[in-house]
Amino acid sequence: MSKSPDQNGIGYLIADLSRLFGRVFDRRSAHLGLTRVQWRALKRIHSSQGVTQAELADLLDMEPIAVGRVIDRLQKSGFVERRNDPNDRRCWRLHLSPQSGQVMDPIEAVAASVREDSVAGIDPQQLQAALKVLMQIRENLSQLDRASRGESSLRKG
């Protein structure tokens, strides 16, 4: 059974959207001195104060060693504090420092402007329909990921 061109290209299209979104974000936020990965880490730490580096790596879908380097840079810049875990001396808990407030609002404004500009000219109903489809694709892929690494399928018949 042949697939429509739309089905064949959806993965590439989603990857292109992500890449382009990131590129525009990076250019617009360059004056703030934060990379996209650093911003994502700050956002996750903000929403989960006290998260461990291992938990953060999981949330960001990154290797722990790479997250460690990101946190090193954020700590050196004064945006993140590593604090001892009171229950486990081997573990560090991550918290935003007061200085992080200097970049949180401006970088969020950049993110909001990129999101807003990226959907310019799209009918709100069409956008809602597209988002619904993308959320269903995400759910399908999440189910497949949780299953036995691709051996299951959501296809019927």
Rank of each mutant, 00 (worst) to 15 (best):
G78A: 05
D16V: 08
P98W: 04
G101T: 02
R40F: 09
M135I: 04
Q49H: 02
A66F: 09
G68S: 11
E108R: 14
E116T: 14
S142L: 12
Q99T: 05
S47L: 10
P86G: 04
R69F: 12
V37I: 10
V80H: 09
V51A: 10
V37H: 04
G78Y: 01
P86N: 05
E108K: 12
F79C: 01
A111R: 15
Q99F: 08
A30Q: 13
A41W: 01
G11R: 13
V103R: 06
S97G: 04
G33S: 04
R40M: 12
S142I: 07
Q125I: 11
T52C: 06
Q38A: 08
S18M: 05
K132F: 11
A15K: 12
L20I: 13
E63H: 14
W92A: 08
Q49Y: 00
A57W: 07
G121F: 08
L74Q: 06
E81D: 13
V51R: 03
S77N: 13
R115T: 04
A54N: 10
E81V: 07
D117W: 05
L34R: 00
M62A: 11
W92H: 15
G33K: 01
R115P: 00
M104E: 08
R83P: 02
E139F: 10
G78D: 04
A30L: 11
N140G: 12
P98C: 00
L56I: 01
I45A: 10
A30V: 07
H95P: 03
R115G: 01
M62H: 10
G33Y: 03
L17H: 10
T35K: 08
Q126I: 14
G78N: 05
